[in-house]
């Protein structure tokens, strides 16, 4: 059977998903992902032309509420800031462009 996905495609998908793959991972990923892709081809046997997709269950409806502003505790904020690089009470990250 011919391959459904190439190493190059996997590299591209990983880049889109913002995942750096280690050398070892990149070596094994094509084979591992290919085996799952081959397995799911089974669904092609079923004719689903007349079938509606099941995105959610009919009994369940959204719970809607008004937006409420709640004060995040200063303590939590401090804890979060302490975990990152912060400057003047802002989190510092790398440049976007």
């Amino acid at each position: 059977m011919s391959n459904l996905i190439s190493k190059k495609e996997i590299e591209r998908l990983a880049y889109f998903a913002r995942i750096k793959l280690e050398k070892e991972e990149l070596k094994n990923a094509p084979k591992e992902i290919e085996s799952i892709l081959q397995y799911i081809q089974k669904l092609k046997d079923i004719n689903t032309e007349e079938v509606e997709p099941l995105f959610h269950f009919p009994e369940l409806t959204n719970i809607v509420r008004e937006d409420q502003v709640e004060q995040t505790g200063e303590e939590i904020r401090k804890k979060m800031m302490k975990m990152g690089k912060d400057k003047d009470n802002y989190l510092k990250v790398e440049s976007i462009l």
């Binding site: 996905i5 495609e9 996997i10 998908l13 990983a14 889109f16 998903a17 995942i19 793959l21 991972e25 990923a29 591992e32 992902i33 799952i36 892709l37």
Partner: peptide, 10 residues
């Protein structure tokens, strides 16, 4: 986790 993210992105 990486494998599943890649498969899902695909």
């Amino acid at each position: 986790v990486k494998r599943r993210i890649i498969l899902g992105t695909y």
